[in-house]
């Protein structure tokens, strides 16, 4: 057990053999590059074809639209990295947002405590998901499909046919969401902060390395004594907490909190993660890629409106983008597997 707490060991498990970190780093860079190149292509095409695309204001609009999606997708990515899924992310956002907004009416003095409340609710809901998946070993699709309905149902029951409008919640909600520091919108800053913190945690902490290790090969991780059950559970708790935060910021952004807040977001969020190069099999992907994935989705939406294209083409183009991203990802991971094989041989002979 203790042996697994040395980060170098977990890295070794993620990529058996020597030189694991640099190879993994390379693979991540390749994936990351894939999204980045796609994004640049997309921006080039739209810049040429749409009049008002390449302006500072428009870039700001795109990044702003991607902000909350990025946060939610980072939470999802934590879970996906372990080789699992969270389909309840939209419902978690909705329930956390609704309860928080409701509490804010009665206790407006809580201020930042309200953000903490949303995060806590999200973490609690994530903990339940993690319990089902990590401890009860229920396949994550099944477990979170169930909790998706349960959390959404609870939101309806809690709301009892009501909605919370922007004039009921504390006015700083709106100011928070609409405000900016040095010209950068607060929500974008929040998203950047979440991405940075999670990226650092994943890269430089034991827990972060273990997440990759468990996701790459859970049996090996277990064999080497990693507390894989707890790692998966923690990924769900952290993912839920981030979803709770995303729910709160979403509510602050749109002002009116309804029972269907973030309904259907599980697919958007998953799309952002997949386009961002997070392997749906777990074990590889970066949160910066996820952020770019969210920006890709926001760019498609923005660019097509600027091109005056009827909205339903978006569905088609987004779908194709996802398939493309997956194909690139598969090509990369095949090369990785090939590298792994060589490395394994090296490890055996060494």
């Amino acid at each position: 057990m203790t042996a697994g707490l040395d980060p170098r060991h977990s890295v070794g498990i993620a990529a058996p053999g020597t030189g694991g970190r640099s190879r993994i780093g390379m693979a991540l860079r390749v994936r990351f590059l894939g999204v980045a190149i796609f994004l640049v292509l997309l921006w080039t095409v739209f810049s040429i074809s749409a009049d008002n695309f390449l302006t500072g204001g428009n870039a700001r609009a795109i990044v702003f639209a991607a902000a909350v999606l990025t946060i939610a997708a980072v939470g999802e990515a934590l879970v996906v990295l372990t080789g699992n899924l969270d389909l309840s992310v939209g419902s978690t956002m909705g329930l956390a947002a609704y309860i928080t907004a409701d509490v804010s009416i009665g206790l407006p003095g809580l201020n930042v405590g309200l953000v903490a409340l949303a995060v806590l609710i999200g973490a609690a809901l994530g903990a339940l998901n993690g319990l089902l998946v990590a401890w009860l070993k229920i396949p994550s699709i099944v477990a979170t499909l169930g909790t998706m309905s349960i959390y959404r149902g609870l939101t309806y029951v809690y709301a009892d046919g009501q909605q919370i409008t922007s004039n009921e919640v504390p006015s700083w909600f709106g100011r928070l969401a609409a405000g900016a520091v040095l010209g950068i919108p607060n929500l974008v800053l929040a998203a950047a902060a979440v991405v940075a913190v999670v990226a650092l945690v994943l890269r430089h902490t034991v827990a972060g390395r273990m997440l990759y290790a468990v996701g790459s090969n859970i049996e090996a991780a277990r064999f080497f004594g990693l507390p894989s059950t707890r790692v998966v559970w923690l990924a769900y708790v952290a993912g839920g907490a981030i979803a709770g935060l995303a729910g709160f910021l979403y509510a602050a952004q749109v002002g009116t909190v309804t029972v269907v807040l973030a309904d259907g977001w599980e697919l958007q969020v998953l799309a952002a993660a997949v386009i961002g190069g997070v392997s749906i099999w777990g074990g590889s992907g970066s949160v910066i890629g996820v952020a770019l994935g969210a920006v890709v989705l926001a760019t498609i939406q923005n660019g097509l409106i600027l091109l005056h294209v009827q909205a339903y083409w978006q569905l088609l183009i987004q779908g194709v983008a996802i398939a493309l991203a997956v194909a690139v990802d598969a090509t990369v991971s095949r090369r990785e597997v090939a590298m792994n094989r060589t490395r394994r041989r090296v490890a055996v002979t060494a």
Binding site: L85, I141, L267, L270, A271, V274, S279, I280, W281, Y312, W313, Q314, L315, L316, I317, Q318, G319, V320, A321, I322, A323, A325, V326, A327, D329, A330, R334
Partner: peptide
């Protein structure tokens, strides 16, 4: 092509709907 089915059909779900 050996692609992950959930991700692929997430894509085609949108594409077919479009």
């Amino acid at each position: 092509y050996g692609l992950p089915s959930l991700a692929v059909t997430l894509g085609t779900m949108g594409a077919y709907s479009g």
